[in-house]
C-alpha cells in the first residue's frame, strides 16, 4: 500500500466541522464543510482518533491503542487519507 504521509510527531485533531458517529463496524466521519463522508472500518482506528486530544502526538495515540510494528502501515495510510481530505488537522 502506498503510504500517504502523516507526521506522527505532530499532534492532530478532528477538523472542528467534522462529526464522528459510532457504528457497529467502526464509525462514520462527516465533514460539514466539504460534505465528505468517510468510514472508519474498525474500532481501533476510532479509538485512536477519539484519543487524539489526550496525547501530545500521533505516535503516542497509536501506541496507547496498541497500534505498532507491522500493524501500523494501514493505520498511517488511513490517517494520511483523513489528513489529506481535511478530516484531521494539526492541533
Amino acid at each position: 500500500m502506498r503510504g500517504l504521509l502523516i507526521d506522527i510527531s505532530q499532534r492532530w485533531r478532528l477538523h472542528p466541522q467534522v462529526a464522528l458517529r459510532p457504528e457497529p463496524f467502526g464509525a462514520l466521519l462527516y465533514h460539514f464543510g466539504t460534505r465528505r463522508l468517510s468510514f472508519l472500518k474498525n474500532r481501533t482506528i476510532v479509538a485512536v482518533i477519539e484519543s487524539l486530544p489526550d496525547h501530545p502526538d500521533l505516535r503516542a495515540a497509536l501506541t496507547a491503542s496498541g497500534v505498532g510494528g507491522d500493524d501500523e502501515g494501514p493505520y498511517l495510510h488511513a490517517l494520511g487519507v483523513l489528513a489529506e481530505s481535511d478530516m484531521l488537522v494539526p492541533a
Partner: peptide, 23 residues
C-alpha cells in the same frame, strides 16, 4: 480507509443496517 479489497466487508456491514441512516 479505502483499500479496495476491504470494501465488500463494509457493504456487508451496511446490509445489516446502521444505527441511523446515512442518507
Amino acid at each position: 480507509m479505502s483499500a479496495p479489497a476491504r470494501v465488500p466487508r463494509l457493504i456487508e456491514q451496511f446490509e445489516r443496517g446502521l444505527d441511523a441512516p446515512i442518507c
